[in-house]
Amino acid sequence: MTDLLFLAFAAVTIGAAILAIEARDLVYGAAALGIAFLGVAGLFFLLDAAYVGWFQIAVYIGAVVVLILFTVMLVGPKMGEAPLGLKRVSLLAAILVSLLLGMTGALANATAFPGKDSCGSGCDLYLLSTSLLKNYGVQLEFMSLVMAAAVIGALALSKTDRGP
């Protein structure tokens, strides 16, 4: 059952990711990106990280993708789309990426990864939350500081000076 689910999620994720990069229309690309994020969230669920999965859905699909869609609308969907041509650099990139994949595959085969076993107390949400607040409390606060800075920065950047 999990095998099937895994295959489905993996296929959706990879397919949607490719579509996101290659779709001619940016709006479709953004939608495909959202689906890819959903697929990754599914993989998180399979890894017993349900909380992170929901977080991924909320933040990525609820916020980032919507933000991207708005930007695409604002900027204009067709804007800046260069015609797709198989350039030298694409070829190089493709070669590199396949090399990457191949070598990782080889490495993964060579290394004996243990199978996924039962999670037990380690995937406890309670443990996660206490760890987040107790061991990483300071980092969490800094995170919110960075977030505030990012919000202010984004506001400052996109603020229009209504000129003449």
């Binding site: 999990t2 095998d3 895994f6 993996a10 994720t13 990879i14 990711a17 490719i18 990069i21 890819a36 990754v40 993989l43 399979l46 890894l47 350039k87 650099v89 694409s90 190089l92 990139a93 493709a94 590199l96 990426v97 396949s98 990457l100 994949l101 990782t104 595959g105 993964a108 085969n109 290394t111 990864f113 243990p114 199978g115 996924k116 076993d117």
Partner: peptide, 24 residues
């Protein structure tokens, strides 16, 4: 149960797609 290596595989493929997009 699915071995963890298959999750790594998905991760690497996503990375590859990302690098491909960044370059092209």
């Amino acid at each position: 149960m699915e071995p963890l290596s298959s999750f790594f595989a998905v991760s690497v493929i996503l990375l590859g797609i990302g690098i491909y997009g960044l370059t092209t």
